[in-house]
Amino acid sequence: MLEIENLTVSVEGKVVLENINLEIERGETRMLFGENGSGKTSLLMAIMGLGNYKVESGQIRFKGEDITDLPPYERAKRGIGIMFQRPPTIRGLKLKEMLELIENNGESPEELARKLNLSEFLERDVNMGFSGGELKKAELLQLIAQNPDLVLLDEPESGVDLVNISLIGTAIRELLQKDLHKSRMKGGLIITHSGYILDYVEADKGCVLVNKTIWCTGNPHEILQGIRERGYQACLTCQK
């Protein structure tokens, strides 16, 4: 579904991602590990076409189409959705109105909000004064409304308490159609530092971003264990 080939990306002349190769198949959930500043968020931003991330070389294809130069809304319309790590506040725009703006499968904002215990936030400005957990839930709420085929999640568990992480985990599972097996169509790329999300969302593969590129693709639990025991730099010695 998503194919990234030899992708090099720069920001203001500085290379932040180098020669990235990544393929996510339909129905696959991929965990992305990496130390702070390794380029994980940059990769998600580049896939979504956000920020001043300039593609120096390489290609991003989604469902067989080259989307490297498409604006973010075209990528969203083709089925890519992103959960921001630090979403901005949109003053004067109620969360309910935001959900109404998003093209969705007809579920009402009230129905959607009930699922994530966010009913009382519908009349509040988007992300204004939300706690860490509320931000994540509001992001997920929008993604559920958007119903994308490829879900990009940037640290969904950070700043979330134990009760809410379970709720968020359940919502992500639903978003990724984890209850389906053969007929699962949704793909996901999830950035995680702690790996806690793996307790709630099973991943098919994991990979590590070190020094601006991807290393060590394999079993996510094994990779996480390896990082815990030997650190990120040890990944450099693994087979790419």
Partner: peptide, 16 residues
């Protein structure tokens, strides 16, 4: 207008 706010909405499917 903050660019990140525009892009946030664009990531939800709105044109610029």
């Amino acid at each position: 207008i903050a660019r990140e706010e525009i892009e946030y909405l664009m990531a939800r499917g709105l044109t610029e």
